[in-house]
């Protein structure tokens, strides 16, 4: 099966007052048609930057894509001109963002915001677009869709707005949707509803989904495959179950250990990763995770480990992975 989306060695740099930083440092991952792929990492790991680069939505300046390829249906999006990439946005790749409360334009009606992409990309008439918008609102579980078209964003709750965003992303029937932390700003109960909805819709409509998150719980329940990112690099990749069962990068192990669990005694302290998220202007030599790593050796400071295959459908970028592979998390 050829990949729907293939990111190869993507490098994105930002110029900041503190110097140029590499937000994405040779990032590679791929997405097959109809598949749900999670990209996990803490703030500043480059997961959002990579996702925004796909639709070329990185603000330039200060950001700049300096290298690599983003192949979508076999074509390199980085070589598209502004007009070509505009026709990919919304039409062939839909995007859902983190903040539903601020993601809808406050002065335009829901109907207007939902239909404009369909009318532009699909050439629908106003009546056709309205009819399709009503169907989409039903699909995402919004009651009384006819009257919602005339409503404004401030009439809707956060969860409903995110449903509208999902409906908008689906509106032009794109084969791929990128969701950048789609549930971070929502209540826990609403989070689960939204994620179930997204998973269900993607499965039913055969849409591939890239879900960017810092929440490993989401990965376990919804993703087929996972890419764990740290300091602008993919440090571990594999099937979601495989990564859970046999995490082989100390960072992934740390992430899994720091998740609060019901099967531990009440009041037992969490087991966080020591240290702070990396300062991208002052990355250490060798492996970027080395200052926080409990398995660090002299080799780690000298050389950055490459992402190498470990088992079936499992890659890790750590010199110690062989030893860690198969040793389940605590």
């Amino acid at each position: 099966m050829t990949a729907l989306l293939e990111i190869k060695d993507l490098v994105v740099e930002f110029s900041t007052p503190g110097g140029t930083i590499r937000a994405a440092n040779a990032v590679s991952y791929d997405v097959n048609p109809g598949e749900i792929v999670a990209v996990v990492g803490e703030s500043g790991s480059g997961k959002s930057v990579t996702a925004l680069s796909i639709l070329r939505l990185i603000p330039d300046p200060p950001g700049r894509v300096c290298g690599g390829e983003i192949l979508f249906q076999g074509e390199n999006l980085l070589q598209y001109n502004e007009e070509q990439i505009r026709q990919v946005r919304g039409r062939r790749i839909g995007m859902i963002f983190q903040e539903p409360m601020t993601s809808l334009n406050p002065v335009l009606s829901i109907g207007r915001q939902m239909t404009e992409a369909m009318r532009l990309h699909l050439g629908l008439t106003a009546a056709q677009a309205d009819a399709k918008a009503i169907d989409l609102l039903k699909l995402v579980g919004i009651s009384d869709p006819e009257s919602r078209l005339k409503a404004y964003p401030h009439h809707l709750s956060g969860g409903m707005r995110q449903r509208v965003m999902i409906a908008m992303a689906l509106s032009c029937d794109p084969p791929l949707i990128i969701a950048d932390e789609p549930t971070t700003a929502l209540d826990v109960t609403i989070q689960a509803q939204i994620l179930e909805l997204m998973k269900d819709l993607c499965r039913r409509l055969g849409v591939a989904l890239v879900i960017i998150t810092h929440n490993l719980g989401i990965v376990a329940r919804y993703a087929d495959r996972v890419n764990v990112m740290y300091a602008g690099r993919v440090v571990e990749r594999g099937g979601a179950r495989e990564i859970y069962r046999r995490p082989s990068h100390p960072y992934t192990i740390g992430l899994l250990n720091s998740v609060p669990r019901l099967d531990r005694p009440r009041g037992s302290p969490l087991d966080p990763i020591p240290g702070n998220p990396p300062d991208l202007t002052l990355l250490p030599s060798g492996c970027a995770f080395q200052p926080r790593c409990t398995h660090c050796t002299a080799h780690c400071a000298a050389e950055a480990p490459a992402l190498l295959p470990l088992g079936q459908e499992h890659w890790s970028a750590c010199f110690e992975s062989e030893g860690l592979y198969g040793v389940a998390a605590k």
Binding site: R86, R89, G90, M95, P106, A117, M168
Partner: peptide, 16 residues
């Protein structure tokens, strides 16, 4: 603002 980024991600024309 976020909603302008969303609008751009929908592939709208610059004038719109």
């Amino acid at each position: 603002t976020d909603y302008m980024r969303v609008a751009r991600a929908k592939g709208l024309k610059q004038s719109t």
